[in-house]
Computed example of a mutant assay.
Amino acid sequence: MELNKEMYAFLTNKARQLTEEWYASLDKSDPDGVYASDDPDVIAELKEQNFRFHGYLCNLLIKEEEAFYKEFDEWIFDVSRSKDHVNTPIHFIIREFMRVRLQYMKFIDEFSQENEHVDAARVSEWRDKFIKAFDNVILKFTEETYEYQAKRLEAQREMINELSSPVILLKGGTALLPLVGDIDTQRAKFILENTLNQCAKLRVNHLLIDISGVVMIDTMVAYQLFQLIEALNLIGVSSTLSGIRPEIAQTAVQLGLDFESIHTVSTLAQALHF
C-alpha cells in the first residue's frame, strides 16, 4: 500500500505536466471537433477536463475499485455530454484516451527507474490496473456518448415528424394535412397520433389529406393511413384523400388495397374546391 501511495503522489505531482505535454503533442489538424479548436476558452476547458481526469484516475492507486469507478462516472458523464465533445467524432476521442494511456505507461517506467525498491511485479501490477481502468473508461464513455446521441436523435426525429406532418387549419372547420417524403412505420404511427390530437385540439370537422409528395406507400403504411381515416371518422372528422400518384395507385392495386370506401380526388386543388 505504501508503494501505491508513493506512486499516487508521483503521478498527482505530474498531473499538470501530463496535461501540458498531452496538449502540446495533440494533433490539431483534425477537420472538426474540440481538438481542432483555436478558441482560448475551449482550449482552457479542454485542459481543465484533462487535468481533472488525472485527479480521478490516480485515485485508482489508493481507493477501493468500486468507489473509484463510482467517482469516475461523474467525470465521464460530464465530459461525454459537453457540447464540444458531443461534436467531436468518437474515434478522435478514443485516440486521445489511448495517447494518455501511453503517458501513464511511461511515467510508471520512470518511477520504477528512479526507485530501485520497486520490483518488476509491482510495475506489471500497476500497468495492468491502469490498462484495465482505461479500457473501462473508454467503454463507459462510448456508452454514455451513444445514449446521449440516441436521445438527441430521437428528439430531433420527433421534431422533424411534427414539422413534416402539420395539421393546417383552413376555414369553416376544414384543415389540411400535407404529407411529403418517405413514410416508414414509425413515422406513420406518429402521424396517426399527432393528427388525431391536432384535429381534436383545432376542432376540425373535415380533413384534407394530401399525399402527392409521398414517394412510396407499402402495405403497412397504407394500413396506417386507413387506420387514421377510420379513427378520424370515430371522432367525427370526415376525410378527403388527394394526390394519389399513378405509381402509388398501381402499387395499391397490386397489393389489393381498397380505396373505394375513402373519398378521393386527383389533386389538392380539387380537394380544396370540394
Rank of each mutant, 00 (worst) to 15 (best):
E45P: 11
R81N: 14
L207E: 01
A24P: 01
Q254V: 10
G172Q: 15
I43F: 05
K140D: 12
I168R: 14
F107K: 06
N87M: 07
R52T: 08
F53I: 10
H263D: 08
S124D: 06
K28E: 10
L18P: 00
F111N: 10
D119Y: 09
L207T: 02
E125H: 12
V265K: 09
R245M: 11
K14A: 12
F92S: 02
R16G: 02
A120S: 11
K70Q: 15
V42G: 07
F134W: 02
F134Q: 02
N115P: 04
A15P: 06
S29I: 14
M1E: 08
H117R: 14
Q113H: 06
A44M: 13
T264N: 03
S165H: 03
D109W: 01
P31E: 11
E71V: 07
S112P: 01
A269S: 09
H91M: 06
D135S: 14
K151D: 15
S164A: 14
K129M: 13
S82P: 13
P40M: 01
I62W: 04
V180Y: 08
F97R: 01
R245P: 00
G172K: 15
R101P: 07
G55K: 14
L26C: 14
Y104I: 03
W75T: 05
M98C: 01
V100L: 07
L3P: 10
L153K: 15
D78E: 12
V42R: 03
D109H: 00
E66K: 07
Y104L: 09
V137W: 04
L46K: 11
D218W: 03
D210Y: 05
V180C: 10
V34R: 03
E154W: 01
L153Y: 10
D135T: 10
Q254G: 12
P31M: 06
E260V: 13
V86G: 00
K140S: 13
L232K: 04
E193D: 15
W22L: 08
P31W: 07
R81S: 07
R157M: 12
E65Y: 05
R187I: 01
Y148R: 05
V100H: 04
V215T: 14
T19E: 11
K151E: 15
S80G: 11
F97A: 01
D109R: 00
V253G: 10
A133F: 11
V214L: 06
D184N: 15
V253S: 04
N197Q: 14
A133T: 09
L26T: 12
H263R: 13
G213R: 08
D30E: 10
D32E: 14
A200Q: 05
F51P: 00
E230I: 11
S37W: 07
N136I: 06
E48I: 02
A271V: 01
T219Y: 04
I90H: 06
L170H: 07
P40Q: 01
R152N: 15
F134H: 02
F68T: 09
R157A: 13
Q224F: 06
G33W: 11
R99W: 00
N136M: 10
I93Q: 05
N136L: 10
F72V: 08
F274V: 12
E193A: 09
K140W: 03
Y56E: 06
A271W: 07
L234M: 15
H54K: 06
S239V: 03
V180I: 15
V180F: 08
V100K: 08
K129V: 02
Y223M: 13
